[in-house]
Design a protein around this nucleic acid. Structure first.
Length: 422
RNA sequence: CGGGGAUUGGCGCAGUUGGUAGCGCGCGCGGUUUGGGACCGCGAGGUCGAAGGUUCAAGUCCUUUAUCCCCGACCA
């Protein structure tokens, strides 16, 4: 993308009505736009990050047999009454409205009931199971208080997956596969080392549920971790019995602030029974489906990544989710320089490398400052000096020093073959 | 929902004891510049979140209200 064509602009100042680092930087860099408290729009650069995260999650979900769909945003009242969750006393985050006819509808804050209703129509036999579906959906929750920028909003993008299994064993296999897939997701977005599968209270069916917690000062959770053993537990299950079960002593645990980036649980057959979601087994008997629910907060994940890696100059994106892998800045408007910069931009783009090309008629200092603020991993400068030397000037976002490199070096760095550079 | 703070051009801010608004950035035009957010000149842009009140006079005082931020509570 050519920056001269991008409608968003960066700002020299951070917005006064945000204190969360993620929101300050994302707004300053033009990645997001605040509509109201807890509600943000995603502008081109921000959307690219979202889409990159989604692509990784999608790959991993497909890899364990997830099938993607998109559920509706509007949900009928009657559906939620079958499980007793329409009431505002039971669920206090509902946004509700009415159709012209007077029928009441809710805006989806989760899709558990609707997905069961949908799956009921297609699952009749044990031969139809397991069936695992997921979606990327904007959830609407009327939170009493939004906070922490995009980390806790009233409107946010979530990947939610639901598993339908014949029995506890089939369910458990998928549950474990999901834990592994989630670990790969967090590894790939750069948070692997600081993200822990965390034991949390499990409800009626299992001793524990599992949260995926990323160590983050801006998070709103407190967890207890043991880095060596890779064990983490939520405050709510921190008791002698749990500690004994997990084989870890209380004095071996470190208390840290964290952000919940994922959460998975086992519903057993409770919801299936409430909603009469059943199949016929091999013996011709009717049985209730075992359900599981698995979420990853996509926009929260983006916020956590922004928070964790940012430095005093701005955002710092891991290459896997950055809006572009390479930032090319041309200095000055010399014809040869422009031609060389255009050439590199075209070459990289043609080979599938995402590039933010700063072809604006602004001074060098502004280009450097914006490159840092945007947080693009690789910065390549093309100027009269570099053209004369037949090299490019390269600097990593996380490095303080620049170096002269050749086109071959650029190719190697980006994983391009020699033939691709011709 | 309880407590605290805030609201003044697009953004960030200043406005002393009430006397009818100012700075920086940004923006437009002209010129000089061009390797870490350049400089000079000219110019456009607000009636001070909203409503009501006190006063000869309100951005400054009073009341109500809306919105935003923070702490807490809440978060299947």
């Amino acid at each position: 993308m050519r920056l001269s064509k991008l409608f968003t602009k960066t700002s020299k100042t951070t917005p006064a009505d945000e204190t969360a680092k993620n929101a300050q930087l994302l707004i300053q860099a033009g990645f997001i736009h605040k509509e109201m408290a807890g509600v943000y729009s995603y502008l081109p650069l921000g959307l690219m990050v979202i889409e990159n995260i989604k692509a990784i999650v999608r790959e991993e979900m497909n890899g364990i047999g997830g099938q993607e769909l998109i559920m509706s945003g509007l949900q009928p009242k009657e559906l939620w009454e079958t499980t007793g969750r329409w009431s505002d006393e039971t669920v206090d985050v509902w946004f509700k409205s009415k159709l012209k006819s007077g029928a009441e509808v809710g805006f989806g804050w989760t899709h558990e009931e609707p997905i069961v209703e949908t799956m009921k129509q297609y699952v009749d036999s044990y031969k139809d199971l397991p069936a695992n579906v997921y979606q990327f959906q904007t959830k609407l929750r009327n939170e009493l208080r939004a906070k922490s920028g995009i980390m806790r909003g009233r409107e946010f993008v979530m990947k939610d997956m639901y598993s339908c299994s014949t029995d506890a064993q089939q369910h458990e296999a998928f549950y474990q596969a999901t834990i592994a897939a989630y670990n790969r997701v967090f590894e790939r977005v750069g948070l692997g080392i600081d993200t822990y599968v965390t034991f949390a209270s499990g409800g009626a069916f299992t001793q524990f549920s599992h949260e995926f917690q990323t160590i983050c000062d801006a998070g709103e959770d407190i967890i207890y971790i043991n880095r060596e053993k890779g064990i983490a537990l939520n405050e709510e299950v921190l008791n002698d019995k749990t500690l004994a079960d997990l084989g870890v002593g209380r004095d071996e645990l470190e208390k840290v602030k964290s952000a919940e980036v994922g959460n998975i649980f086992n519903f057993g057959t409770q919801k299936s029974e409430q909603m009469d979601f059943a199949f016929t087994n091999e013996q011709g008997e009717r049985q209730y489906v075992h359900l599981g629910s698995y979420g990853i907060g996509i926009t929260r994940l983006m916020g956590v990544i922004a928070e964790k890696f940012a430095d005093d100059k701005g955002l710092v994106w891991p290459e896997s989710v950055a809006p572009a892998r390479v930032y090319i800045a041309r200095l000055g408007d010399d014809e040869t320089v422009t031609a060389e910069a255009d050439k590199l931009y075209t070459l990289l783009t043609a080979n599938g490398v995402s590039v933010l090309y700063d072809d604006r008629e602004v001074r060098p200092g502004q280009k450097f400052a914006d490159a840092d603020l945007f947080g693009i991993p690789h910065r390549i400068i093309i100027s009269e000096k570099t053209v004369a030397a037949g090299t490019f000037e390269y600097k990593s976002r996380v490095s303080d020093t620049a170096e002269a490199i050749t086109l071959d070096d650029v190719g190697k760095m980006l994983g391009l073959s020699t033939s691709q550079l011709l």
